[in-house]
């Protein structure tokens, strides 16, 4: 009984699928082969899409995510990037320094001075979570990509190198019309 019911359910769906497939009109045998030959010939006559990389620089989008750059002045060594990094490839060391007070007569401020900010690009998987979590706009995506090294240990880049890449970071695009203004300073 149960088998009959399933059978009754299956039959209409079968009919449905068969009506859905369009009936092919008859074509001359070999027409498809000739069409295929036409496609390959067309592609041969078109210019190739290959870019000869070391001779010709690739035409990349302006905001390409090539490498992570650091604006050292913005970094407070809060360690958010270090802790959110899935690969643990960011190393920060810092010490406290006294800075002049904000208002005259106030107590001197204590600021964190970054001694070491290294990213090990042999480990980094370019997920960009550090850039996202940074609350002080210290980390940016740079379109730079030519930083390979002969030795894998040399891929551990320090804050000087990360700072140099800041120059290649493009200006942030303007906010869309009607977008919420950024709060704070």
């Amino acid at each position: 009984m149960a088998a009959d019911e399933t059978h009754a359910e299956v039959t209409p769906t079968r009919g449905e699928t068969s009506t859905r497939t369009p009936v092919k009109s008859w074509t001359l045998p070999g027409v498809g082969l000739l069409k295929g030959l036409g496609v390959t010939m067309k592609h041969m006559l078109k210019p190739a899409v290959t870019q000869q990389y070391p001779d010709v620089k690739p035409n990349l989008p302006a905001r390409t995510r090539g490498v992570i750059a650091l604006r050292e002045d913005n970094c407070t060594s809060c360690m958010l990037c270090v802790r959110s990094c899935p690969d643990w490839c960011i190393y920060i060391e810092a010490h406290k320094e006294l800075a002049p007070p904000r208002r005259a007569g106030g107590a001197p401020r204590k600021v964190n001075k970054v001694d070491r900010f290294d990213i090990d690009y042999a480990l980094c998987m370019y997920c960009g979570i550090c850039v996202d979590v940074c609350p002080f706009d210290a980390l940016f995506w740079s379109p730079e990509y030519e930083y390979s090294e002969p030795r894998i240990a040399d891929l551990l880049h320090d804050k000087t190198k990360l700072g140099e890449w800041m120059e290649t970071v493009p200006e942030a695009p303007a906010l869309e019309a009607g977008a919420e203004k950024k709060k704070g300073k």
Binding site: T40, H43, M44, K46, A48, V49, T50, Q52
Partner: peptide, 13 residues
């Protein structure tokens, strides 16, 4: 060369 260009590549250069 022909195979490369038919696939949008340049082949040996």
């Amino acid at each position: 060369k022909v195979l490369a260009h038919m696939q949008g590549r340049l082949g040996p250069m």
